[in-house]
Write a protein that binds this DNA or RNA. Structure first.
Lengths: 334, 334
DNA sequence: CTGAAAGCGCTAACAT
DNA sequence: ATGTTAGCGCTTTCAG
C-alpha cells in the first residue's frame, strides 16, 4: 500500500511552466484564466491524479466539512439512531460525521471535545455526560452545537429531546387509570436531566416517594437487583413503571427468572419499544418514543445553522411519546 | 455562538511573553523546557481553552489521526458493535473515527470512500456493498484498509469476519442431530459473501436445495412473507434455520402472528442473539456470534498497521459461533 | 491574463 | 533554556 506522494499545485505548475497561483485559479474555475491554460491545467491535474489538500485549505479558512457526534455509547439504540440520522442528513449535504464515545465519563468527554475542536469541526451534537467539565462547556461554546436528549445548564447549545416528564406521566397515568394505587418507579439516578424529568412525570401522578427505586439508568443487572428488592418487600407494589431501556430489560429479565405472573400479579409499563419487547410474555405495554424524529430535528437544526453562524435558536419543545398497550398491564386484583 | 478564532500557540506565547516555539515545545513535553515555564504554558493553555489545530499539524507532515468506518447502516447491531469497538480501540490511541453509511448502495459507497481519501484518513474499515465500484476498490487500495464481516474479491485488504459456513453448519446440524429431516433455510440472497457461506453451511448438512428460501437479508417484512409461503406449502418443514438477524426477527413475528406452536409444530434456530430473543416463546435457540471479538481483532490489526505501513497481513481466520439451546427446538413429532 | 508574495498554525533545524 | 527562521499547500491580495 504505497503512501503515494501527494500531487500539489506546484507539481502541476512546474510541469506546465506556470505559477502556482495560475494553477490554483484554473482549478478554481476562475474566470480570469484563459480557457486554453485552464484546460491544460485541468488535464494535467487529472493526469497526475491531483486530489487537493484539505488541510491546507482549512488553514486558509475554508469551512470544515466535518461535524462531531458525542455520545455515551453507540451501541445504545438511542444513539445509533442519532448517528444514523446525522450521517444521513449531513452526509446528503457533503458533511462527514466524527463519532466520539464518552462512556459517560466527564474527562473522556473533555478529551473528545478537545479532539473535535482540534479537528476544526463545523458543529457538534452532544449527549452531555452527567457532570460536564467546565472546559468542555467553554470549548463547545465556541462551536455551533446542539444537546441531544440530555440537557445540562452549563452548555449553551439548544436542546432537542423527548418530553420525558410527559412520557412518564402517561406511563404512570395508564396504570393509575386502570385502578392501580401501589405503583413503583424504577428509574435512573437524578444526576441526569432526563432521569429527573422522568421522575417528575411519575410524581405528577403518584405524589408519593415511597415506591421510588433509583438505579443506574444503564445497568441491566442493577435494575434486576432493584426489582428483586422491591418484590421482596412486605407489601410489594401491584404495578411497576420503568425509566430507561436498560432498566426495562432488567425488570423483564428478573420477572421472567422469578416466573412472576404478569399482569395477574404485577402490571408493567416499559420505557421505549425495543425489538423484542412485544415478544415478552403477552407483549410489553410500553412507551413508544420518537427518538428518530428528535434526532432528525436536531440534525436539521444544526445543518441549517452551519453555513451562516447564528440564526436565533428557536427553542424547540420536547417530543412526547405514545403508549402502546399490550399484554403486561391489567387492573389490580382485589 | 461567536465563531471566535480558535486559540493558537501564538495567543499563548503573547500572553506569556514567550516565543511560539517555546510554547510549542512546552506543549509537546519537550525536555529542554524548564519545568517552570512548561507548567505556566500548560496552565495558560488550559485557561484559554487551547485545543491545537489539526490542519496545521497535518501540513507539517503529521500522520492523520482519523480512520474511516464504512458500514451499510449503524443501527444494525453488528455495525454499531463495530463502531463501538473501533472508537474504543482507536480512540484510546488518539485516533478519531469518521462514520460513513452506504445503505448498501455502490455509488454511495464510492462517494463515501472518496470523502475519506479527501479527508486524508490513515485507514479504513469497510463492510463492502454487494458489488463495489471499480473506483472504490482502486481508492481503497491506496490506503491501509480492512474488510469487516463481508468480503469482496475486488478489495485487497484482509478480511475479518465470522466463519459463516461453520455457524450455519452448527445451527442446521443441531436440528439434524435431534432428528429433523425437513429443515428449511431462510437465508439472504447470494450476492453477499456472508450469505453464500451461510448457505454452504446449511448445504453441508442438508444437501438438498428444495427447502431453501432466499430473501433480502435486511428485511423483516420479506422474511415474514417468505416464511408464510413456506408454511402454506403442502408439506411444510418440521424445522427452520435462519441466515440473518432481520430474517430471524421476521420469522419470529410471523410465527407469533400465526400462533404456530413452537417447538411442537415447528423447531426454530435463529441467527445471532439479539436482546429479546430469549423472551420469545420459551426462548429462542440461536447462534451466539462473536461479532464484538471480530470487530476488536479487526480494529487492532488496523491500529498496529497504521504507524509503519506494511506488516505482512497474517490472514486471520473467521470466528465461529456457539449454539445457545433454549426452548424453540425439539425432536420432530412422529 | 498571469506572477510574486504573504500568511494561515505549527514544528524542526539552526541559532543563541 | 529560549528565540529566530523557514516552510508545509493553498488562496488571496497586490503588481504587473
Amino acid at each position: 500500500m504505497p503512501v503515494r506522494p501527494a500531487v500539489t499545485t506546484r507539481d502541476i505548475a512546474e510541469r506546465l511552466n506556470l505559477s502556482v497561483s495560475t494553477v490554483g485559479r484554473a482549478l478554481a474555475q476562475d474566470s480570469r484564466i484563459s480557457t486554453g491554460t485552464r484546460l491544460r491545467v485541468q488535464q494535467k491535474a487529472a493526469e497526475l491524479g491531483y486530489a487537493g489538500n484539505h488541510a491546507a485549505r482549512m488553514m486558509r479558512g475554508a469551512p470544515s466539512t466535518v461535524v462531531g457526534l458525542v455520545v455515551p455509547d453507540v451501541r445504545n439504540s438511542f444513539y445509533s439512531t442519532a448517528a444514523h440520522a446525522l450521517t444521513q442528513i449531513m452526509g446528503g449535504c457533503g458533511y462527514q460525521v466524527l463519532l466520539c464515545e464518552t462512556g459517560d465519563d466527564a474527562d473522556l468527554e473533555l478529551a473528545q471535545v478537545k479532539g473535535l475542536v482540534a479537528a476544526q469541526v463545523a458543529g457538534v451534537i452532544v449527549v452531555p455526560a452527567p457532570h460536564p467539565r467546565r472546559e468542555s462547556a467553554r470549548l463547545l461554546a465556541q462551536l455551533p452545537h446542539v444537546q441531544f436528549l440530555r440537557r445540562h445548564p452549563s452548555l449553551s447549545g439548544p436542546w432537542f429531546g423527548l418530553d420525558d416528564r410527559a412520557i412518564l406521566r402517561a406511563a404512570t397515568g395508564h396504570l393509575r387509570g386502570i385502578g392501580h394505587t401501589r405503583i413503583a418507579y424504577l428509574g435512573g439516578t437524578p444526576e441526569l436531566s432526563t432521569s429527573r424529568q422522568r421522575l417528575n412525570g411519575y410524581l405528577d401522578v403518584v405524589g408519593d416517594e415511597r415506591l421510588i427505586v433509583p438505579a443506574p439508568p444503564g445497568s441491566v443487572a442493577a435494575a434486576r437487583a432493584a426489582l428483586a428488592g422491591l418484590l421482596d418487600r412486605a407489601r410489594p407494589p401491584s404495578a411497576v413503571v420503568t425509566g430507561s431501556v436498560r432498566i426495562t430489560e432488567g425488570v423483564l429479565a428478573e420477572l421472567r427468572a422469578r416466573q412472576v405472573s404478569v399482569p395477574a400479579d404485577l402490571s408493567v409499563v416499559g420505557f421505549g419499544d425495543e425489538p423484542g419487547f412485544s415478544w415478552w410474555g403477552a407483549g410489553l405495554t410500553t412507551m413508544d418514543l420518537p427518538v428518530h424524529e428528535v434526532a432528525t430535528a436536531c440534525s436539521r437544526w444544526l445543518l441549517e445553522r452551519l453555513p451562516d453562524g447564528d440564526p436565533p435558536p428557536p427553542r424547540p419543545p420536547g417530543l412526547a411519546g405514545s403508549l402502546i398497550e399490550r399484554g403486561s398491564t391489567a387492573p389490580p386484583r382485589r
